[in-house]
């Protein structure tokens, strides 16, 4: 009896300790779901050992656009750029500590850079000024981007206090983010309503569509 009790208790506790599944739904003030925003959870007690996400984040240059336009990675993770266009791009980031620039030739697939500081990485191309892309580097392994239903699902989150952050370059708030303190002790379903609607995402399109333009 006692053994059985312990076993059940252990399983229950174990579920609680290591298998909290958190669903976060991001909506705007009109109750419409918001797709593509970055959602991440930062433990308040930062002694947790953050395992590094090892696979690189892949950003394509296709039709003279950054694809995806917005992405998230963990500080220390690598971005791998793949140029699928038949022209050279000169990719740069002018953002604080995460400055970089390099040329990537037509079809080149393996230009990489490691993002060592958390924060926004605003990327552009110094040849095609309309190209624009964002990567957010976060100092936590618990990050995601909302799907078409406005949902982000996190599995196996250890219990504790967290700062939930919603980030998008077109979110017109301070630092483009919206934060909330959350306590995680069980499976939870949070609903977040953004304080402001997102601004329109830039089209990454030149005013003239012709393929053989020069800098005249």
């Amino acid at each position: 009896m006692i053994n059985k009790f312990f076993l059940i208790n252990f399983l229950f506790f174990n579920t609680q300790a290591f298998a909290n599944n958190i669903t976060i739904k991001v909506m705007d003030s009109k109750q419409s779901k918001v797709e593509g925003v970055i959602v991440y959870l930062t433990p308040e007690n930062n002694t947790l050992n953050h395992a590094l996400t090892k696979h690189p984040l892949i950003i394509f240059q296709k039709n003279k656009k950054f694809t995806p336009y917005i992405a998230v990675l963990q500080k220390g993770q690598e971005i791998n750029f793949k140029n699928q266009d038949d022209v050279t791009h000169h990719i740069y980031s002018a953002s604080g500590e995460n400055r970089f620039d390099f040329k990537i030739k037509a079809g080149e697939q393996n230009k990489s850079t490691v993002i060592t500081t958390s924060g926004e990485v605003a990327m552009g191309c110094n040849i095609h000024d309309w190209m624009s892309g964002y990567v957010l580097a976060v100092d936590t392994p618990y990050f995601d981007q909302t799907n078409s239903q406005g949902l982000s699902i996190f599995k196996h989150i250890p219990p504790g206090s967290y700062k939930l952050t919603i980030w998008h370059p077109q979110l017109e708030t301070q630092k483009n983010e919206f934060t909330k303190k959350v306590e995680i002790h069980n499976n939870y379903h949070f609903k977040v309503i953004l304080p402001k609607p997102l601004l329109p995402i830039p089209a990454q399109q030149n005013q003239d569509e012709f393929d053989f333009l020069e800098g005249y």
Partner: peptide, 8 residues
């Protein structure tokens, strides 16, 4: 505005 100052 195009190659060799041509107009497209």
């Amino acid at each position: 505005i195009a190659t060799a100052w041509s107009t497209p």
